[in-house]
Amino acid sequence: MSGTRFLLLTVVILVIQLFVAEFINVHHMLYIAVILLPVMILPYRYNRSVAMLIALAIGLLTDLSYDGVLGLNAAALVAAAFFRDPLLSLVASKSARENLSAIGPHTLGRGKFTLFTLLLYSLFFIFYIALDNVLYFSFFYTFGRLVLNVFANTVVMVIMESTLLRGPFGGR
């Protein structure tokens, strides 16, 4: 995926994120975070330090745009960018990773991409919920919120994968 296409995809995802945050409120415990997608499929040629800085910029832009708590999305996205490669190594072999131009269902395969999505969302929401719930810690509530958000967002991401990533922003 070229830099221009990635930038365009990020803008589109940000608009979708704002729309979802503003108009779709299923439950106060559920946060649909499609903004993880740009970090997830960030071109593999960028090293992790650059990926973290890009994630921070996207996160702060998201927090500023939809009047959330400044720093929440940014912290979670930075963590996702930092742990993206180690998590990827859990689902793809070293030789497969060396040949990856970008992370996506077309390069990893649908099953591995879904597993990778699930792991990355788990990490994203561990950071997000830990910061959001820091003064309300209750194990069952926090765990329930984590599970709900991870599974719901993975489903949303799989749907997006079959639309955005295979349509106008297909990375082949």
Binding site: M52, G71, A75, V78
Partner: peptide
């Protein structure tokens, strides 16, 4: 990573509503 997370934590602790 630690530096960026600390920065984000600082922003959350400040509760950025006023700044925004």
């Amino acid at each position: 990573f630690i530096l960026l997370e600390a920065f984000c934590l600082f922003l959350v602790a400040k509760n950025g509503i006023i700044e925004r």
